[in-house]
């Protein structure tokens, strides 16, 4: 590749299905999924916090799994399905976790909230699929029926999402309510 300077990069065509809608776009190979969403598609529910994978504000579900969109290159995820917090529910038909965050006042400024909610959605699916955490009491146990989540489990599994306002106690309350509602269902 000729040295053309940092401003003129290499471009690639790709498609992303975001919250159920398919988009075709052309991006510089340096573009992350987060920047593709925010800067190319005007989908701003995934937030840019640290842009280094340390805060979790950019969490989306990428092909169903919770992922840091700031560390994912868009060009490497051509054809992927992205779900942001915006796509989890609709006006008047919120996702149970969105309702629980409202009911439990699980935020102050709200900046980390879309990432927290996407992370919680992915986390509950991981637990239901039998993924352990480091605080799961018996790692050798048969977990095929899922892992029951107490508050310690929820806090550990949500540790990739920072909240600078410190709303953690209410976030755990909100996730706890939905976790046990889903288990009972």
């Amino acid at each position: 590749m000729a040295d053309t300077g940092y401003l003129s990069g290499v471009h690639a065509d790709l498609s992303l299905t975001v919250d159920g809608r398919r988009h075709e776009l052309t991006v510089d190979t340096r573009t992350t999924v987060l920047d593709a969403l925010r800067e190319h598609l005007d989908i701003t529910s995934a937030k840019k916090g640290c842009d280094h994978g340390q805060c979790g504000a950019c969490t989306v579900l990428l092909d169903g799994r919770r992922t840091l969109s700031c560390l994912s290159l868009a060009v490497a995820h051509d054809g992927s399905e992205v779900t942001t917090a915006d796509g989890l529910g609709a006006d008047g038909a919120l996702h149970p976790l969105q309702e629980a965050f409202l009911a439990h006042d699980a935020y102050q400024c709200g900046y980390c909230t879309p990432g927290q909610i996407c992370s919680a959605v992915g986390m509950l699916e991981e637990a239901a699929a039998g993924h352990p955490s480091v605080v799961t009491s018996d790692l050798g146990a048969d977990l095929t029926a899922g892992v029951d989540l107490d508050r310690t489990e929820i806090a550990e599994r949500m540790s990739g999402n920072l909240c600078r306002c410190g709303a953690y106690a209410h976030i755990v309350d909100a996730v706890d309510e939905v976790a046990h509602r889903e288990v009972a269902r």
Binding site: G53, G56, T59, R65, R66, T67, L68, L71, S72, S119, G122, M123, E126, P132, S133, V134, T136, R157, M158, S159, G160, N161
Partner: peptide, 11 residues
């Protein structure tokens, strides 16, 4: 399980 976060371990 003692390393990183749930999101990073998925990636």
């Amino acid at each position: 399980l003692a390393g990183a976060s749930g999101q990073l371990r998925n990636m």
